[in-house]
């Protein structure tokens, strides 16, 4: 698969998305063990998943706008947390 470096974010921006990424993963794995009979926790989890997903997407939208990242049909963006680099991977336009 073709991979093209298209941008670089700041460490602060990286920390923000890394926290959201970690939280989203944590919520997804927690969802496998929290059942609806645990009312309070279940409600809290569902609400948090919605909120985190929204904030996660909002970060990518905001950054894509700020840095005017290249995109293409069928491709996706990747971030390397070590280097703060953003890549465009796959798709037709590469």
């Amino acid at each position: 698969m073709v991979k093209k470096l298209i941008g670089q974010i700041t460490a602060g921006e990286r920390d923000e998305i890394q926290r959201l990424y970690e939280r989203r993963n944590g919520l997804n794995e927690l969802a496998q063990i929290v059942t609806a009979d645990n009312d309070a926790l279940y409600e809290k989890l569902v609400a948090d998943m919605g909120d985190t997903t929204t904030r996660f997407q909002a970060w990518w939208d905001k950054m894509a706008q700020k840095y005017a990242w290249e995109s293409c049909e069928g491709g996706h963006w990747e971030i390397n947390f070590d280097t703060c680099e953003i890549y465009l991977v796959g798709g037709d336009a590469l």
């Binding site: 990424y21 491709g75 963006w77 390397n80």
Partner: peptide, 11 residues
């Protein structure tokens, strides 16, 4: 577009 993260070298 989809999004993917690479988290090697974690913290």
């Amino acid at each position: 577009m989809s999004i993917k993260e690479n988290d090697k070298g974690w913290q």
